[in-house]
Write a protein that binds this DNA or RNA. Structure first.
Length: 316
DNA sequence: ATCCAGGGGTCAC
DNA sequence: GTGACCCATGGA
């Protein structure tokens, strides 16, 4: 039943460390907070103040660890990435993942202008919009997460990854890679239902996987489209991808600065918590608010999600 | 027990 | 274009 392949990384390869200097308004701890929210995340591991994750660069699997010192992020990895080209790509991956190259001060200036939101610039200082590099993974994750609570979503994501993803065995333990579309395109609805996917979710996953295999959708194809409208149109032309998922993907993977997953329940709750909208259908005030954050709408969404974990908004 | 979760598709009007 | 209904499970 378990058909993943195991890859043993070379034990004696030299460890390499690359230093990424921390930009202004960057907090590794805030970023780690987001990645470690008490969910059963299977695609990275956090212990103490370090995060370890497996990725595939050009089909070349590797495991890396991030830590920080006073001024730098320490990116550590063993072999497989040892060529300077691969090392550079890994560096790019991390910078993109944590959005380290963006100057977010203009966003903070906008926050400070809003009475109800200005506290975020202080309380969440240095939090970056953590991305998901792979479009296929993003879309699958969205389908999994649709209309179920997050803890259950993480649970079935783990089952999917453990059953159909590759497993890397290293000196630091085992790490998993998200499944490939080629693998999932050949799976049946019944196999996914065994993992407690609903019939709809199972079929969406299989359908999206086939779309990737046939080239009807790809990261390159999507980013080649210039306007947001064209991108949304391509994404929502696929079954299982609606407005929410399409905007989420543009925000997390394409890093569109102004994508808002309207209708997102967490977003609505956060706006309501801050008394920025009266009810969940109050789209007018929502759009009015976001208009003030032109160029930073995606960041505002991310910070509003962050606010849901603040103690003052926890109790219901 | 009942309602709601980081929605989306379908169908009726 | 709007609204009702279905999906499937788990947490509160």
């Amino acid at each position: 039943m378990l058909n993943f392949s195991c890859i043993f990384l070379h034990k004696f390869a030299a460890m390499q460390t690359v230093l990424l200097s921390k930009p202004d308004l960057f907090s590794f701890k805030e970023c780690l907070w987001f990645l470690d929210r008490n969910y059963d995340e299977c695609l990275h591991r956090i212990d103490a103040e370090a995060i370890t994750k497996a990725i595939s660069l050009n089909g070349n699997p590797l495991v890396f660890t991030l830590e920080e010192d006073e001024k730098n992020i320490l990116l550590k990895t063993e072999n497989k990435a040892s060529s300077s080209e691969n090392m550079d790509e890994l560096r790019r991956y991390v910078i993109d993942w944590m959005d380290m190259e963006r100057n977010i001060e203009p966003f903070y200036e906008l926050l400070k202008r809003d009475k109800k939101l200005s506290y975020m610039a202080k309380d969440f200082s240095g939090l970056r919009l953590i991305g998901i590099a792979d479009l296929y993974e993003t879309l699958c994750w969205c389908i999994i997460g649709q209309q179920i609570n997050l803890s259950f979503a993480y649970k079935i994501k783990r089952r999917l990854v453990e059953n159909y993803g590759r497993k890397l065995i290293t000196s630091k333990g085992e790490f998993l890679l998200f499944p490939e579309p080629e693998t999932m395109a050949g799976i049946t609805e019944e196999k996914l239902k065994e993992l407690q996917f609903s019939r709809q979710k199972a079929n969406y996953i299989i359908y999206i996987s086939k779309a990737f295999c046939e080239g009807r959708i790809s990261q390159g194809k999507l980013s080649a489209l210039k306007t947001t409208e064209e991108r949304l149109e391509l994404l929502t032309s696929l079954k299982g991808i609606g407005e929410w998922t399409a905007n989420y993907a543009l925000m997390k993977t394409l890093r569109d600065p102004d994508s808002v997953p309207y209708g997102d329940i967490g977003l609505l709750n956060a706006l309501s918590n801050h008394q920025l909208i009266r009810d969940r259908k109050d789209k007018k005030n929502m759009e009015k608010l976001f208009r003030k954050f032109e160029g930073w709408k995606s960041y505002l969404v991310f910070y509003l999600w962050r606010s849901l974990a603040s103690p003052s908004f926890q109790a219901k």
